[in-house]
Design a protein around this nucleic acid. Sequence first.
DNA 1: CTGAAAGCGCTTACAG
DNA 2: CTGAAAGCGCTTACAG
Lengths: 346, 346
Amino acid sequence: MEPATPVRTRVRLVDVAELAGVTKSVASRVLNGDTTINVRPSTKQRILDAARTLNYAPHAGAKALAGARTKALALLVPDLMNAVYARIARGAYQRAREHGYVVLLAEDTVDSNAQSDYTDLVGAGRVEGLLIASARQGHPLLDSGQLDAIPHVFVNRSVPGSGRSLTVDLQGASQIAFDYLKGLGHERMAHISGPGVLMPAQEREKGFVAAASAAGYPAPFVVREIFDEAGGFRAAQQIIEARPDVTAVYAGTFSQSVGALKALRRSGVDVPGDVSVLSYDDLPLAEYLEPSLTTMSLPLLGLGQLAVDALVAQLQGTPPRDIVLPEKPIILERESTATVRSPGTA
Amino acid sequence: MEPATPVRTRVRLVDVAELAGVTKSVASRVLNGDTTINVRPSTKQRILDAARTLNYAPHAGAKALAGARTKALALLVPDLMNAVYARIARGAYQRAREHGYVVLLAEDTVDSNAQSDYTDLVGAGRVEGLLIASARQGHPLLDSGQLDAIPHVFVNRSVPGSGRSLTVDLQGASQIAFDYLKGLGHERMAHISGPGVLMPAQEREKGFVAAASAAGYPAPFVVREIFDEAGGFRAAQQIIEARPDVTAVYAGTFSQSVGALKALRRSGVDVPGDVSVLSYDDLPLAEYLEPSLTTMSLPLLGLGQLAVDALVAQLQGTPPRDIVLPEKPIILERESTATVRSPGTA
DNA sequence: CTGAAAGCGCTTACAG
DNA sequence: CTGAAAGCGCTTACAG
């Protein structure tokens, strides 16, 4: 059994140079857009044409070895199945291509070996930088000190002291959420938050509580559950039980909202008649649920795009800094939220 | 502005060799598990220890240049947001790691440039092989002849004549679906199929129609719509309008089912009282919809895993062949399906 | 300005 | 069996 060998032998830089009647050096410089070189436009054109004719694709490994940039970035996400990361990834891909970079996506799950992911991608010299959307507190990469050696950016994660966090203003989002619900006349609200160790959950929670306090409203009832449907389900049960007078629920994720909807329905609580539900993450599905979900839409695509911008800037020597996306999240109103029921109607 | 240079200089093979007191050659062979070499166990151990101590990570580019395998595969999916591909991807990652490979994920959307994706990954020598889950008919890669030069496998896509298709038996799945609905007493069924050009849609459709015909049942009413919620919504509307006597709907995707549920609800059709809905793709969400969705669960993780196995085998010289997953899909029964309503009850 | 040459970090025939 | 050496395809000081 012979290893399958590619049929066609690789087109090399020399081949291009030969066809264009120049040396490798010139061809290399022209192809790489070196501006310090001075070649006749006709020569330049000949080289470009030759490359196109031969379908020249430079060997990434050779380039990297010779000291050139690999023009590759890696994006680490905690969960491929999560639509939020899928959006961020899409934004990152788009923008990366505009910068001439490829993005290599890796799922950095809790049980997968972050260490070997890192080694495979960074240690092996495959990528120039890392977009990390998977950094929870205590993440192995954070403590290993390995990140010191490589340009990186934290996406949708504020890592204290890193100076490299790219985030949406979630406290601000919670303020918007509060104002919206308040505008509908709600006073007794609950918030379905996430695991305490997760920064986004903390931010949302803090902002919501602060907003209520600033408005002189009763403190929202906060319950922390994991970010999936089951978490939302349990959270809603707790809310109904502990605070039956709550008229509005603000949930941290789409999945939690779906779970909450189910729990409320089960308990005979009408949405939005008795309780309004405000969700996160405007997925196509939101419109098709029963009732359709009012959602807070975060600029996720933009987050991915700006993350790439920030990383590329870092690669070019700009000192890294924390960035909070300027775009405000917006609320897309659907059926799950409504004016508060008049007191005593229930 | 200086380019950010990594602080630590790279640990090379020589460094490991030196520390272990051997030459590069020996170190290389030992590290790569060359069995033809004969070294004392103690020497071998010293080399391994040295590598670990120094945290040695071989430069992927240099290895590739020197003719070694890159130990990297690329997976092309049409849509990152689609949970089906996320599962396939997860399966592929797992298995690839077991084989010592990295998987680079790329979203190969209709409007993205498949050509440049290809060039970036294959042409640049970044990967040894391609897992293609994005090949629709007329896909640029299919006609360009470029695939001749690289080992590849089509995942969940049967590309006629390729001899490299890895698929689930969707006709068989449709047979199972039919038998299930028939078992519930349904006779007048409809099928929400997908765009005619997509092989999976064709297979499902063909199998369902054939099953009905073989059983001597009326031909199912088939409507072709795109694979998302909106498609399912429109499809259900057409079904209600054209065939109000239909009692069971078999939808090709989860999203279509969600859309269909909404359309039925809107039209006052009770699910499963009036019409049963059988969906595909057992997502966590299925349980939380109203009513919860009965789904056909495909061995998606296994598909990703076997795809990697097949590609790795190909890389080792085994002639490629079409493979149909042996595992049968299973039906997870929930609330959206029920025994047919007794005739005339409506 | 331009081209010849060195060197990036590996692997693997090949000679000893 | 083992080690010195060539070579993979590039880039980029450096000498001319």
